[in-house]
Simulated assay, not measured.
Amino acid sequence: MSDIPRRILIIRNDKLGDFVLSLPAFALARRAFPHAHITALVPEYTRELAEACEYIDEVLVDRHRDTSWSHVLRLCHDLRAHDFDAAIALFSIGRVGLALWLARIPYRLAPATKIAQIFYNHRLRQRRSRSEKPEWEYNCDLVRRCITHFGDGDTSTPAPPFLHFPRDEITDLREHFCAQHTIHRDARLIFLHAGSGGSANNLSLEQYATLAAAIFTRIPAVHFVLTAGPGEEEVVHALANLLTGIPHTVYHSTQGLVNFARHLAIADLFIAGSTGPLHIAGALDVPTVAFYTRRRSATALRWQTLNSEDRRLAFSPPDGVEKTDMSAIDVDAAAVTLCRTFFIT
């Protein structure tokens, strides 16, 4: 058993959904090391969400993202200034590994993969390419290895939600949102995110429109909120044009990720492909319906959301068709299943 670390760095500096799926790992570290100062190394575009996470004491922005020697040295300087005892790279890349090594952080842990592993003095073989468990579980496994190295702390999986806001705040926001958009206060709010952010295959806009119509037929007291992030305005308005006669509102998020997350917290259901907003909804423990390919690196298991098991549904192309053929998903059948699961008792 080694001395308990006082200052821990946890690194997840890639895409939004990847960072959100690291939140259980941060929760696990916080529970095991309650007195440690936990810092997250993230890119600028997930900084705001990281700062809203109760398990994180400090956020360090990875501003030196090219592989030049000068940028590696600048990152090394930033790391040395924080005097970390331990660093856990949930996502390992060479320049970060080199900076950690140059910063002489005593305990450096990462997946045993790629050439970057040479910079770490502790490694865990995970074989993530096999996609045998959820991404968030791979992240937690790394933190569990750190916990067992330093002692015998609790390594059980934390329970959702992993993001939350005060209940009164969300109740007031929902009332304001409904009043602002002339939505009946008792309507079921189904948030639908048709954008993909370029990160995953998704349903077509026509499929989403068919899905919405099938839901509306079964649950008339529903109102769809079509969400759009930066650069997705054209997509969301194209979908809105397909929803003739179906009550809907376009919500374009322009005030940052935390404000966007607050709005997702008012949803009765969130529907999307495998993308960052889906994972924010899951972290809030909002019920979700997600559409995935069957490609091994992009399955419903690998990119499972963080919400409770009874609050998530996933649909993929059936056997016998191309694994990435999202057009083969029966959205009418999906509508029946989600209505029975979440709305019809």
Rank of each mutant, 00 (worst) to 15 (best):
D330F: 03
I11W: 12
A81V: 09
W101T: 04
W69P: 08
V286S: 09
I170Y: 05
F270H: 02
A27K: 01
L211K: 02
A86K: 02
T244M: 14
D310M: 08
S131F: 05
R80E: 08
D325K: 00
T148V: 12
A212C: 12
D62P: 13
D78I: 03
G17S: 08
Y55H: 01
L301F: 07
G245L: 02
V59M: 12
Y45E: 03
P287G: 15
P106H: 11
T337C: 14
I215T: 05
L192T: 11
R340G: 13
W101A: 12
A281E: 07
L124V: 04
E175T: 10
L242R: 11
A103C: 00
P220F: 10
D18R: 10
I246N: 09
I280N: 14
R294I: 00
A87P: 02
E48A: 07
V236C: 07
V20I: 12
R130V: 11
Y138S: 01
Y251W: 13
H279P: 01
G282W: 03
G17A: 06
A238P: 10
Y138K: 00
T113L: 09
V96I: 05
D168E: 15
L189Q: 04
T249W: 11
P220K: 09
T148D: 14
H176K: 15
A110I: 01
L192R: 00
L23G: 03
I170W: 00
L338A: 08
G273Q: 06
G273I: 02
V225M: 07
L205K: 02
G151P: 04
G320Q: 02
P160V: 05
R144W: 06
A228R: 01
H237I: 10
T148P: 09
F315K: 01
H252I: 15
L284F: 07
A27Y: 04
R174A: 01
A103H: 02
P247E: 09
R218C: 06
K114F: 10
R125V: 10
A221Q: 03
A110S: 07
A238F: 05
F150W: 05
V96F: 01
P158I: 05
V250A: 03
I183S: 03
R125I: 14
A32L: 09
Q180N: 13
P24W: 05
P158N: 07
